[in-house]
Nucleic acid binder design. Structure first.
Lengths: 227, 227
DNA sequence: GCAAAAGTGTTGAGTGTACACCCATGC
DNA sequence: GCATGGGTGTACACTCAACACTTTTGC
């Protein structure tokens, strides 16, 4: 594209940088948690943040987010969706950056965070006890928690937080961790079973010192809306 | 920010351009409609598109979208919210652009689209009869319609499509235009009145050749969730 | 036999849905 | 007095919320 006059030249002024940040949720020790990395150097050195990265010119936002998951957290093949785009002028003191936030759901038993060279540390963090965070990342986490809370009410999205096979009590614990309060066991079971999103396996979870529990699977391990 | 080594230099590679596109909904002749502009020149000359613009380095996305509304459609002071970010690699053949879509709701009686010099034309278009559109704008419109449909079920968002005072039948027509089918009058009134989002004025809409209808106002002309 | 968690039903309140007629006005 | 749209109530089905005891296992 040739630039021929000053009017058109305006259009090639460099705009904000474009980044993706990823909110990776899991349930860990009964608490809804997110994966945080600790920044090594620069103005945010020592602060905690969400894994993120610049969007390359030849990748879509989804692709860029997927690569962040893979490279910075070693996570692949999980449910991921776009959350919201954040653009406050001062959100990154190093330069004007617009960030598209994504969220992903993982089964923490399957993924162990590993520190990568250029981060000081990496860890799962209870979303209700966030440390001081860089950028507007606390706001992003809270926005993501709200979305997740809404979405468990009308979809099977929690499949992303559960292993292939699980008991109804385990599933209920996931719901309770997300909404932050206890649920009636009988009502929960009645409701979930009526949604027709689970199938009974004929296995049981044994090895506890109490009665074995039936194991269930999701009919579809992909997003299904339930009303 | 000084660039000191080749590793850092990578970070200043120019990424995708960042734009906002605005989906401006109204109800016009009983049909849910969007404001489209016709592109004058270039590879998309003659095609219809949503009003949009590049995001300047010193504006947030919300600000940039608000300015697009003001400058390209002459609309201000209406409900507006972020919809989604679109980033397919080939969405604009002129160059890699990521677009953050916004949607706004207006009362078509208050805004008359005016053609601006650099567009060939501008018009309200029924969302169920879209012309061939530039970029991925048809997808954006459909995404926006879906969001709007969902949102009228759990919020007072339709205030944006209605004048200050209106009859329940007018309000019902707005709902019907959005969901695309008729609703039972008695059930609609019972439901809406039970939500406690309207107040009765003591005026009536006269001048028709039938019985005058009571006029109502929204308690709050800002987004309120109703369940 | 006891501790621990799994599993199971009923009732009442509230909400959603289907459905038909009278009322106030203009002409 | 008739055409037009405004305005109203009831019955049934369904969903949601509250609530306590029995079953199966390990030790």
């Amino acid at each position: 594209m040739q630039i021929k006059n000053s009017k058109k030249r305006k259009e090639v002024i460099i705009g904000p940088a474009l980044a993706v940040d990823t909110l990776i949720f899991t349930i860990r020790e009964g608490a809804l948690s997110v994966l945080l990395i600790q920044i090594s150097t620069g103005p945010y050195g020592g602060k905690w943040a969400l894994p993120g990265g610049i969007v390359p010119i030849n990748e879509t936002l989804d692709e860029a987010a997927k690569k962040v998951l893979a490279k910075k957290a070693g996570i692949a093949g999980v449910h991921m969706e776009q959350l919201y785009s954040f653009s406050a002028l001062n959100r990154d003191v190093r330069g004007r950056t617009v960030s598209v936030a994504y969220f992903a759901l993982v089964d923490s038993d399957k993924f162990t965070p590993k520190t990568i060279s250029y981060y000081a540390d990496i860890k799962w963090q209870d979303v209700f006890a966030l440390p001081t965070m860089a950028f507007d990342h606390k706001e992003i986490v809270n926005y993501g928690v709200a979305r997740l809370r809404a979405k468990i009410e009308y979809s099977n999205i929690v499949y992303g937080l559960l292993p292939k096979e699980f008991t109804l009590t385990e599933m209920q614990s996931v719901y309770e961790a997300i909404i932050g309060h206890a649920i009636d066991k009988r009502n929960f079971r009645k409701k979930i079973l009526s949604l027709d999103i689970l199938v009974e396996t004929n296995k049981e979870r044994t090895g506890s010192k109490s009665r074995p529990a039936k194991l269930y699977r999701f009919k579809k391990r992909q997003l299904v809306f339930t009303n």
